[in-house]
Simulated assay, not measured.
Amino acid sequence: MKWLIMVFPLGITYYTYTFGQWAWQKGNRRGAVGIFALAALNLALAIYALYIKRFF
């Protein structure tokens, strides 16, 4: 069941990551690094909330 709940955050992370790749290719390096950090934070918070924290 937790994997089914993870589909939504994984979709958001993938979309954010591809936007970061696009920004990197367009030459916006600083913005791309921030977007990659946002994608990593999104994935880390979802994993924490579903697997590490006991009561969500």
Score class of each variant (00 low, 15 high):
5 I>S: 08
16 T>K: 01
45 L>S: 10
2 K>Q: 12
38 L>C: 10
22 W>V: 09
22 W>R: 13
44 A>Y: 06
28 N>S: 05
5 I>R: 15
21 Q>I: 14
31 G>E: 02
28 N>Q: 12
26 K>T: 04
39 A>E: 01
16 T>W: 00
19 F>V: 09
55 F>G: 05
25 Q>G: 05
36 F>Q: 01
1 M>C: 12
34 G>T: 07
55 F>D: 12
2 K>V: 09
4 L>G: 10
29 R>I: 09
52 I>C: 07
35 I>C: 04
17 Y>G: 00
25 Q>H: 11
3 W>G: 05
43 L>W: 01
41 L>S: 13
4 L>E: 09
16 T>C: 00
37 A>Q: 08
2 K>P: 05
5 I>N: 09
43 L>Q: 05
6 M>C: 03
14 Y>C: 07
14 Y>V: 06
5 I>H: 11
16 T>Q: 03
27 G>M: 08
40 A>P: 04
42 N>T: 14
56 F>E: 10
4 L>F: 10
38 L>V: 11
13 T>C: 11
7 V>K: 11
38 L>G: 10
38 L>A: 13
28 N>A: 07
37 A>R: 08
17 Y>V: 03
7 V>M: 13
40 A>R: 02
42 N>V: 05
3 W>D: 12
16 T>M: 04
22 W>N: 12
54 R>G: 10
23 A>W: 07
34 G>N: 10
24 W>F: 09
14 Y>I: 07
9 P>E: 06
50 L>W: 08
40 A>I: 12
45 L>Y: 12
17 Y>Q: 00
48 Y>S: 04
51 Y>K: 07
36 F>C: 05
36 F>D: 03
32 A>Q: 04
26 K>Q: 11
1 M>N: 14
51 Y>N: 05
15 Y>G: 03
7 V>D: 09
34 G>S: 10
16 T>G: 01
1 M>Y: 12
7 V>F: 09
32 A>I: 08
9 P>S: 03
1 M>I: 13
33 V>T: 09
29 R>E: 06
3 W>Y: 10
4 L>K: 14
43 L>D: 01
2 K>H: 09
9 P>L: 04
39 A>C: 12
15 Y>R: 04
49 A>Q: 15
32 A>F: 07
26 K>H: 08
19 F>P: 03
20 G>Y: 02
22 W>L: 13
41 L>V: 14
